[in-house]
Design a protein around this nucleic acid. Sequence first.
DNA 1: ACTTGTTTCATACGAATGTTTTAATCGGGA
DNA 2: TCCCGATTAAAACATTCGTATGAAACAAGT
Lengths: 212, 212
Amino acid sequence: MAEAEDNTRERLLDQGERLFAEKGFSAVSVREITAAANCNLAAINYHFGSKQRLYLAVFRERWAHRARRVRQHFLETLAGKPRRGLEDVIGAMANAFLEGPMSEAERRCHIQLMQREMADPGDALNMVIEEVMRPYILEITDMVRPHLNGFVDERRLRLSVLSILGVILYFFLARPAVSRVVEQEYDSRFKPELVSHITAFSLHGIHSLNQE
Amino acid sequence: MAEAEDNTRERLLDQGERLFAEKGFSAVSVREITAAANCNLAAINYHFGSKQRLYLAVFRERWAHRARRVRQHFLETLAGKPRRGLEDVIGAMANAFLEGPMSEAERRCHIQLMQREMADPGDALNMVIEEVMRPYILEITDMVRPHLNGFVDERRLRLSVLSILGVILYFFLARPAVSRVVEQEYDSRFKPELVSHITAFSLHGIHSLNQE
DNA sequence: ACTTGTTTCATACGAATGTTTTAATCGGGA
DNA sequence: TCCCGATTAAAACATTCGTATGAAACAAGT
């Protein structure tokens, strides 16, 4: 007995996350997942109870951890700039999401999963919003506020921070459309250009708050 | 013989679109669609050949038409302003998508379908990009360009227009997250506030192009 | 009334789905 | 060595899936 390292459980989470992100919950079968994880068909139901609960476990035991890592990367990038301006905050934000602390495949996985959960709100979305997005957005809001002169409408401020996140995520999720419109592949030269554009665009955008 | 109005075909397109948008392609069964359309199980295969081709037909015969209507609404809104500024262009854009010429349910349907096709690129995405998004983005780009003083990098300009679209779509798709973060339901009072925020944010954002 | 082409219907088919069941296998304590 | 809980394995479960079939119903032309 004793606690084995439970290797198959981990493999199921890995492959499950990858496939759920790639194809969506209903388009993946438990046979596909167990085959990719090199284990028996019944393993999902043994370790998690059902396909649904494997999906939830992916969010709790994989997605949430990675979200913390993204936030950590954001904070560390920012800690490197002692006299940080608004531009640094926004730049660190874009950087954490688009060039952050994970491989390209992992990033794709992470953001696609969130997108799918937004499209089909389920039990996982509550966790994503309440434990990750909301505190993260409010944390950034607090960092942004002091850089704005005069009184700022709190609602508008939050909408602005959300807008920045929106731009960032859009450029990630709408890749095929973006590539075709700007006639440019998503290669390693394009990404920094993207980050700098997003930073500049959002920086000016957020200044709409104190220019009226 | 003769051409009947082919009512069931239309109903299949209607209900198919609604359900595909609501749950995604794989999560909807042909039995669900045919039941909602009040017709026989075999009707989809008779009229379209397969579930896949019903999905494609939805894009060709429903989605594309609505996209044209959105563009039309955008142009008409703009035509009402003889001496149009940059703000008018962006405002018309946000307006066309968020308060445009369709019911709330139709709008939801429209945008969700596009989102799902972005998440799982298939045959329909080519049509969406090449026949709708690309020309639309470039058309708006041409409207925006004259309002920018001096030389503008064409690439950055297109990225900016894409960013505006990104913000707009994000506020539509991330509704649950947005509501919870700003602590405000998506009611009729909130939407104009949203449109005005998006317009202001994007207007300043796009001016990042000629302030350096 | 009969024919013709089109559409609808009930039904059946085989494959694939998530889950359950039951037996085999393994790894330390006694 | 035997035993026992934990894990894996193989097979079977009942549904549900998309699609195919062939007969009925229908409308219009002659």
